[in-house]
């Protein structure tokens, strides 16, 4: 089998790389071209940065909504990520010793985000399961009295849905670090008279922080660029950026495609920057 060495590894890599590079490259090239107004279907071939100028100056139909949507996207992504990271720490500290708990958390990961969002819709809507229970406990007398928790203008439903999926993800990340952590550190700290809180603050937290931060950045990047959950659990205004992008991309007026494409590229750039930060963090964590 040594003779296989004469085959270049590039030959073996060629099929996979070709597909990835061609499709990613093409989608990027077509995306940029369309965002600059090159839409051959309507015979427009001249390039202009009109869509970007509109977006950043807040003009035009898409531009008027852009900054508000960006703010809303950041709010939802940040709130979901921060709450998830905090809850994940608590869950991890409690669950780190039990295989049953990690099993329960793991099983959550196999379910798509979309399923989770739909579950929340049936659970939390004003005629949903919780509203029915509240009504049978005589806390409310009709559906409209139940608080608006999904399809609300603050994005509560979207945030709750992401928390439900990101807490298990981040908690398992923290647990996997905790499991590889030598017991000695805890024992030494205990011997030196550290209280439970001091052990968490000065021994455990610094150990899990890099992995948690790296995972949180990844979660942020995902939430910031995902479409399904805000489309199912959001309202028409304010909308998260991916929903706005697809709305203009599908506009019957084909010139609005440029706006949709430009928004999608803005999302991509931000997502890639955050993902890059996550990888850097992950490397530092691996280097320790």
């Amino acid at each position: 089998m040594r003779d296989r060495l004469i085959f270049s590894p590039w030959l073996a890599l060629a099929p996979a790389l070709t597909i990835i590079v061609l499709l990613l490259g093409a989608s990027l090239a077509y995306g940029i071209a369309q965002s600059l107004g090159a839409i051959s279907v309507i015979g427009q071939e001249t390039l202009s940065p009109r869509a970007y100028a509109d977006l950043f100056s807040g003009q035009g139909i898409a531009g008027r909504e852009f900054w508000g949507s960006l703010g809303f996207s950041l709010w939802v992504s940040l709130a979901s990520t921060l709450v998830s990271a905090f809850l994940a720490l608590l869950v991890a500290f409690w669950a780190s010793n039990s295989r049953l708990d990690t099993l329960a958390l793991n099983s959550n990961l196999a379910f798509p985000h979309m399923i989770w969002a739909i579950g929340l819709l049936l659970l939390l809507s004003q005629s949903g399961l919780l509203a029915r229970w509240a009504a049978s406990l005589e806390l409310i007398s009709m559906p409209a009295e139940f608080p608006v928790l999904v399809r609300d203008k603050y994005g509560i439903g979207i945030i709750l849905s992401y928390i439900g999926k990101e807490v298990p993800f981040l908690a398992l990340l923290v647990i996997s670090v905790l499991r590889t952590q030598p017991e000695g550190y805890q024992l030494v700290a205990e011997n030196l008279g550290a209280s439970r809180w001091q052990r968490i603050r000065y021994v455990t937290l610094p150990m899990v922080a890099p992995a948690l931060l790296s995972g949180s950045l990844l979660a942020f990047a995902y939430i910031f660029s995902a479409y399904e959950v805000p489309a199912l659990l959001g309202v028409n205004y304010p909308r998260m950026l991916p929903v706005l992008a697809l709305r203009f991309f599908n506009d019957p007026d084909l010139s609005a495609r440029a706006d949709g494409m430009a928004i999608s590229l803005v999302i991509t750039v931000i997502t890639l920057l955050v993902a890059w930060a996550s990888i850097r963090r992950g490397e530092q964590h691996a280097g320790q």
Partner: peptide, 24 residues
């Protein structure tokens, strides 16, 4: 470089990939 290229699709939003490939 190969590793990075193969890693990219896991972070590029499907939204951008799908919208870009749509016309092609």
């Amino acid at each position: 470089v190969v590793w990075l290229l193969l890693y990219l699709p896991t972070v590029v939003p499907p939204l951008a990939i799908g919208m870009g490939l749509n016309i092609l």
